[in-house]
């Protein structure tokens, strides 16, 4: 019971600290902007730990963070193997193939007006559909190994990427295009020097949306059949064995991988589109 009161105390302390920081004189500095979410996160984890221990919540309902942490370090080799299987082989290769294919398709769509008129509404429509549903079919076609997961990822990222890239390639204004015309620039010159750079913010938007989709596709596809490793496989079998600490360890890996993947793309974006207003100031 004491631990439960401690949890309550931690909550009040965290709240007080953050409200002091938020209304203090340094509220807009970078340090506070970094510190406040960290304090919030630490408070949540502490409360979780104290409540689980204090109320003696069973391990099969919610393991304490310390248990998950131990499990994470104890099973690093397994987690690493799962990470390689699902993220590197499945999600990453599918992401590259899918985004690359969508990019080439977008150039074709942009070149021929008829394709744009016809394909874009279809693409917009498909982008809103529950494409994860194709997973059982693709697993049946490409086998249980990572090839089928990569195929699911390709299908999932293709349309969001296509729609975004096509929107981006139309971003250059008529005035700018006319200027290229007066320079007697060929199609490819004006494409490489004007329209592609102008499209970059949109392309990166598509790439960033696709990172999350890629991970979702690769993990969910493993629920339909996989070799005996992979994050989706581990999650579904560990849930079956009620070893929830393992499930949470996999979720930690998924969260880290997702954030790192997104962060990587965001970093490349920052380097490529340094000129865009959203990247300045």
């Amino acid at each position: 019971m004491i631990l439960v009161f401690c949890a309550f105390g931690v909550w009040i302390l965290g709240w007080w600290l953050n409200s002091r920081l938020a209304s203090g004189p340094y509220a807009d500095t970078r340090v506070v902007r970094f510190l406040a979410p960290m304090i919030f996160g630490a408070t949540v984890i502490l409360i979780w730990e104290l409540l689980v221990n204090g109320l003696e919540v069973s391990l099969v309902i919610l393991p304490a963070p310390s248990v998950i942490w131990d499990r994470f370090w104890d099973s690093l080799p397994i987690l690493w193997a799962d990470f390689v299987q699902t993220i590197i082989k499945g999600a990453f290769s599918g992401y590259i193939i899918g985004c690359g294919a969508a990019f080439l398709m977008a150039i074709a769509v942009d070149r021929w007006d008829f394709l744009r008129l016809g394909l874009l509404p279809v693409g917009n429509f498909v982008a809103a559909l529950p494409i994860v549903g194709t997973a059982p079919i693709l697993v049946m076609w490409f086998g249980f190994d990572w090839h089928s997961k990569a195929a699911v990822v390709v299908v999932m990222v293709f349309f969001p990427m296509l729609v975004n890239t096509v929107a981006g390639l139309r971003e250059a204004t008529t005035m700018q295009r006319d200027l290229m015309e007066t320079y007697a620039a060929s199609y490819w010159q004006s494409f490489l020097k004007l329209r592609l750079p102008a499209a970059m913010p949109f392309i990166f938007n598509g790439l960033k949306i696709s990172t999350t989709l890629a991970l979702i596709g690769a993990i969910v596809a493993e629920f339909f059949g996989s070799p005996t490793l992979g994050m989706g496989f581990r999650i579904s079998t560990s849930v079956g064995q009620l070893s929830l600490d393992m499930v949470w360890a996999e979720i930690v890996v998924a969260a880290l991988a997702g954030t790192a993947f997104y962060g990587l793309v965001a970093m490349i974006e920052k380097a490529v589109t340094f000129w865009h207003p959203s990247q300045r100031g």
């Binding site: 709240w15 953050n18 409200s19 920081l21 938020a22 209304s23 509220a27 506070v32 902007r33 406040a36 979410p37 304090i39 919030f40 996160g41 990172t211 999350t212 991970l215 979702i216 993990i219 969910v220 629920f223 994050m231 989706g232 999650i235 579904s236 849930v239 929830l244 499930v247 949470w248 996999e250 979720i251 998924a254 969260a255 997702g258 954030t259 993947f261 997104y262 962060g263």
Partner: peptide, 24 residues
């Protein structure tokens, strides 16, 4: 306070495949 402490997590959560929680 909530803007400073919760909002970053809401943004980060969009990059995480939270669907992995579903079976659990």
């Amino acid at each position: 306070v909530m803007d400073l402490s919760v909002m970053p997590w809401a943004i980060v959560s969009q990059t995480i495949p939270i669907i992995a929680l579903a079976p659990m």
